[in-house]
Amino acid sequence: MNIFRFLGDASHFAAIIILVLKIWKTRSCAGLSGRSQIAFAIVFTTRYVDLLTSYVSLYNSLAKIIFIFSSYATLYLIYFRFKATYDGNHDTFRLEFLLVPCALLALIVNHRFQVVELLWTFSIYLESVAILPQLFLISKTGEAETITSHYLFSLGSYRGLYILNWIYRYYVQNYYDLIAISAGVLQTLLYCDFFYLYITRVIKGKAFALPA
């Protein structure tokens, strides 16, 4: 565990906590994409089947369990507990446009044609684009609550910090995984536009709104 991995994971945990707090405190999931959250639940479920096949550490197992559990808890909050506040009309990004290409790509570009490996590969590809329905929703409404923008900033920082972790591992441990790196770079790039607006608006105390 290096400092970048640690900060990346911390940022990921922070994102999840901010998301649940936003829903719970405002009693509303307005402005959140249920479809992105479905995608994240699929990402964690397919990636962490390795809980059953390879033990790494208590930290590792606990983190995986927390990510899986919190993703389903979030879905419960959006689709059941606070369903009345869910922005279904704006959350219209077709998930199959992400799921199908990611599944096909995982079948073609993978390290080994074996079930757990294919699920891992699929989850990496899907994670890289899972935020698109959320960004699409924001582009439709043209705005985001400040707390939602904090959530997105934490979530985007997480994969950005993982890139630094991969650079570190490449030099120090001579370890690299091209599938994780290329998907992680794409994932981080998708946030760049958001990062720019976040830094130029939210940090300065203004509301997050897309330029007219």
Binding site: K64, H111, N165
Partner: peptide, 10 residues
Amino acid sequence: SDSSKKHDEL
């Protein structure tokens, strides 16, 4: 790739 290593990442 060394697949034991990647399971330590989240």
